[in-house]
């Protein structure tokens, strides 16, 4: 038997408990197959339990282990790092628990925060030269360590209560869907919810829209005074939270007739 054939058979034993594959391997130490099978599955369960402690607390041990067993059957690990195995578990939860969507949303929050914990470091933009910028044409570069989780339910409130060791509220759909903004500031992972308008502005700016144009999109909807005040508030929060890595000036278009902003709105 070639090494490749042996390794395929061992994989099939681990993933599917394929008895014929184990028999082809021909070991005199048959008890060893059970040891490796147990190591394989228990290690994956431990990984999921570690990554989704709040989700587990919310749905209880029995439901969690049932979901983990399904996930291990359906999604064999592929990455060199065990950390990556957690990545698809929220999808499995959403499929298994379609009538309890807060479960997958809580899992998405946990996954996002775990992944941010080891994401690339990036210094926040220095605040001392911001008043010199031409904000009309300013381009904002956000940190790479940012994640967004769409929420239809009060998963954020449930997750927050579980983290605080408090009694979580009953699950319910939100009247208006919101988005959780996850980021890492220095070594601390943080999360807050944002409304649809802040989300869209953040996405526009991340997508390369100059600051002045992004402001105008908001003022069209809210009016100039309220719109400018709100974008200024968001910008101040993003800067305070260390979400912005750099602010650079876009080349001013030739003959541009856009009204110029005099400072951060």
């Amino acid at each position: 038997m070639s090494l490749l054939a042996l390794q395929r058979d061992m994989r099939d034993w681990l993933v599917r408990a394929d008895m014929a594959a184990a028999a082809r391997i021909q070991s005199s130490c048959e008890a060893g197959f059970a040891v490796y099978q147990n190591n394989y599955r228990s290690q994956l369960v431990t990984c999921l339990e570690s990554s989704f402690a709040r989700t587990r607390a919310w749905i209880g041990e029995e439901r969690f282990l049932h979901a983990a067993a399904h996930h291990i059957d359906d999604v064999p690990p592929s990455s060199w790092t065990l950390d990556a195995y957690a990545h698809d578990f929220p999808v499995t939860l959403a499929r298994l628990q379609p009538h309890d969507p807060e479960i997958a949303e809580i899992a998405c929050l946990e996954l996002g925060l775990e992944e941010l914990f080891i994401s690339a470091d990036g210094p926040a933009v220095a605040l001392d030269h911001l008043h010199d910028l031409d904000w009309e044409y300013a381009l904002l570069t956000f940190q790479r360590a940012i994640d967004l989780v769409d929420l239809k339910t009060n998963a954020f409130a449930i997750w927050s209560a579980l983290v605080a060791g408090e009694e979580p509220p009953a699950s319910q759909y939100l009247g208006t869907p919101e988005t959780a903004l996850l980021w890492r500031q220095d070594e601390q992972c943080r999360v807050r919810t944002i409304d649809a308008m802040e989300l869209q502005t953040l996405l526009d700016l991340r997508g390369g829209l100059p600051f002045g144009a992004a402001c105008r999109k908001v003022t069209v909807q809210l009016g100039e005074d309220r719109g400018i005040a709100l974008v200024g508030q968001w910008l101040g929060q993003w800067l305070a939270d260390g979400l912005i890595a750099a602010i650079t000036a876009q080349d001013k278009p030739v003959g541009s007739g856009n009204p110029r902003l005099e400072g951060p709105c």
Binding site: Q7, Y36, Y40
Partner: peptide, 13 residues
């Protein structure tokens, strides 16, 4: 092996 990773130290012949 072939995109599958067992995350265990499996023996060789």
């Amino acid at each position: 092996i072939e995109g599958f990773n067992s995350h265990d130290l499996l023996p060789l012949p």
